[in-house]
Design a protein around this nucleic acid. Structure first.
Lengths: 337, 337
DNA sequence: ACGGACTGAGAAACCGCTTTCTCACATTTC
DNA sequence: GAAATGTGAGAAAGCGGTTTCTCAGTCCGT
């Protein structure tokens, strides 16, 4: 009979008793240590199979000092961008036998450092996704989070690679595209105020304005989801802009929908651009002109970098920078006269 | 100075030394045990703060026999439905201080039971999302996974609550809607063959056919993503159907896009329905008629049920059944004469 | 003043597993 | 045939906590 230890689950001791050996030997067999007599090993394996024994990972983690788990902290699990990163990270990590623990901060920046710390202690490494916390706070907690990989955020802390998308360049490309179509009045529908990627976009727009003094660029308050775009219709119309740079594809889609409801023609009356190139972007009507970011790939790369850190391979991981690719579809066209 | 134990991180022993007490006392203080002298408690707390001591969760888990973590196994993390469930689950669990470990089986049903077992052993409970494995296999592993909550799947194993969406009813409602608009030739663009929710839809369609012998319902092979819908254009046109029931919103959107490319008018030429009512559904052109499923809510409910199981509250959790709500938008219209 | 009931904190056991240490026994070597 | 060497498995010591057990030192009542 499958006897049960105190906890009710089969433990190494049960297998040891059943096979008539010490638990040390069971452990050796389970870990493929070849210093065990083949006959005994076979007996242990048989007992393990019969009892359906599976080593308790918690005990194992404590003894080995590793959990084979990594954590990821995201500001908003509802955001397709972070979902894609999570997906890429999870897939890549799974291939190396690692699991992923998720923590959603729900855009509450004050929670981030606590969540990050908690997650980190349960895991072998951490990916911090576009944290909303201040540079100072980030720098303060970064060392205690090592091994740590940052996404869309940088820090001066040593040994913390950053994977950043060049949103500045991307938004410049989009603005150039619109300018090339004759638009002289643009508006930028901004993202969350604390978002670093929003700051990068603003920088890019400044560069664009410097290069194109003839183009007027308005700044409009915004957010990062559908509703933001949908609710921005009035502000957009009031601005008199003919080319709208939405913070991302979601906002663009919301705006698109809102403008359609007002009977406006896209791109006949107004041109709209998104950002990210989420899968849905190509299926809107009209198809959304956007800047494509290889976001799932970014998640995978995050794992590569984190793995190097965990294994202490001294690749002095410099991080990497991703260039968005202009994806021209049908939501942009010549400026209305 | 912050001395470090073998592992390099601050441990309970360091705090004990610093405060001049035994680690047992430190543990008592950290856990709010009031049998400690206030002065000593203060000293310990001060030492803990100064050393930035945080109890190691792995050691804690081993001693307490709980991890404060739950697992979720999904067939495809790219699917918005599972993302929404994950979101609801994660949010609800976080409110009770639980974290979520994710496992993606990538639609490989043979991996599911292994992933589930591994995840379960690291966690206090498990949510199994629309598993693709056979009934027999599910029934076999279910007992070893307890506490377990199933989503969109049922099992006869005792003590395993199921949260299921009544896809059969939903698809019937959609078919009735199309029939009411005069469509007599329908086609169902099926989902993944092993998907239980697909089977439920098929049952619903059988019921519909029995009630409406005058309506012709074709079955078309399919899948669950955009591309499936996009690639199904020819099959749909060949079928001669004027009303298409897509497996879900994603497939419907892909089909919508493909039909647009062929210059067809939706719903003028062909009516299309989706399923799930993902956020994007209302933003397509035309807006997608679909069956709305309160999917995030379902994730939250999964946590409620799982929590009851973990806490051994004998609510003999019967699970629950969710009725989709018909959401009529602009992708369906009168049948073309 | 003395014995019994309390209090509070240290010592030790334990959670489940890995790994070093140790030692009995077998094999080799001179 | 005795010493040197090797081999394999059990005993025991962690890993970092929690909790029971134990026992001084207090406080109380009589």
């Amino acid at each position: 009979m499958a006897r049960k230890s105190a906890t009710g689950r089969i433990g190494i001791a049960d297998v040891a008793v059943k096979a008539g050996v010490s638990h040390a030997t069971v452990s050796r067999v389970m870990n493929g240590n070849f210093t065990v007599d083949p006959d005994i090993a076979a007996r242990v394996r048989a007992a393990a199979v019969e009892l359906k024994y599976q080593p308790n990972p918690v005990g194992r983690s404590l003894a080995l000092g590793k959990t084979d788990t990594i954590g990821i902290v995201v500001p908003d699990l509802a955001n397709p961008t972070f979902q894609a990163i999570l997906r890429g990270l999870s897939r890549a990590a799974a291939q190396d036998g690692y699991r992923v623990l998720i923590a959603d901060s729900f855009e509450v920046s004050s929670e981030e450092s606590i969540l990050a710390g908690e997650a980190r202690r349960r895991c072998d490494g951490l990916v911090l996704c576009a944290p909303r916390m201040s540079d100072a706070e980030l720098e303060e907690i970064a060392p205690s989070l090592h091994p740590l990989v940052l996404i869309n955020r940088t820090t001066s802390t040593k040994g913390v690679p950053s994977l950043v998308v060049d949103y500045g360049q991307g938004v410049q490309d989009l603005a150039e595209h619109l300018a090339g179509l004759g638009h002289t009045r643009l508006a930028f529908l901004a993202g969350p105020p604390r978002s670093a990627s929003n700051a990068l976009r603003l920088e890019g727009l400044e560069a664009f304005k410097a290069a194109h003094p003839e183009v007027d660029v308005r700044m409009l308050e915004g957010g990062s989801d559908f509703d933001t775009g949908h609710e921005a219709v009035d502000a957009v119309l009031d601005s008199g802009a003919t080319g709208i740079l939405a913070f991302n594809d979601l906002v663009a889609m919301g705006l698109l929908s809102g403008l359609h409801e007002r009977g406006l023609d896209i791109p006949g009356d107004i041109s709209i651009t998104g950002f990210d190139d989420i899968p849905f972007a190509r299926y809107t009507t009209p198809g959304l002109t956007t800047a494509a970011v290889p976001i799932t790939e970014l998640g995978q790369e995050a794992w590569q970098q984190l793995r190097a850190l965990i294994r202490k391979e001294s690749t002095d991981t410099p991080g990497s920078r991703y260039q968005p690719r202009l994806e021209v579809r049908a939501s942009t066209g010549p400026a209305k006269k």
